[in-house]
């Protein structure tokens, strides 16, 4: 996992995600999910590419079931983009990097 990726838990969710100064990409994932493993390295790359502009976190749904339920995650990998405390976009499934960066670029420029 890249140093620029934070582990998100119910303890730090409010400070790291809801109250973040920058947009936040949260990767809802689990060990047993094949497509999550496929997209993991891409999320790491994005964390490095967007360092300072977008914070990137990973949320393990096995440990943080409540948060997954709260945000209506019913399929993983699910990438939720938060801005100013609210979900502004989400992507379900392993998608190519440019699908994710397109969305992040729109969020940054808005």
């Amino acid at each position: 996992m890249s140093d620029n990726v934070k582990e998100i838990t119910s303890v730090n969710f409010e400070t790291e995600v809801l109250k973040s100064d920058t947009p936040v990409l949260v990767d809802f994932w689990a060990e047993w999910c094949g497509p999550c493993r496929a997209i993991g390295p891409v999320v790491d790359e994005i964390a490095n590419d967007y360092n300072g502009k977008v914070s990137v976190g990973k949320l393990n749904v096995d440990n943080e079931n409540q948060l997954a339920m709260q945000y209506g995650v019913r399929s993983i990998p699910a990438l939720l983009v938060f801005n100013n405390g609210a979900v502004v976009n989400q992507i379900v499934g392993a998608v190519p990097k440019n699908r994710i960066t397109d969305i992040l670029n729109t969020v940054i420029s808005s």
């Binding site: 749904v61 995650v73 019913r74 399929s75 499934g93």
Partner: peptide
């Protein structure tokens, strides 16, 4: 609703049910 309750992969999404 794909990914929001509709799925083609029980091993990926069964956990949420």
């Amino acid at each position: 609703l794909m990914g929001y309750g509709v799925s083609a992969c029980a091993t990926c999404d069964g956990y949420f049910f």
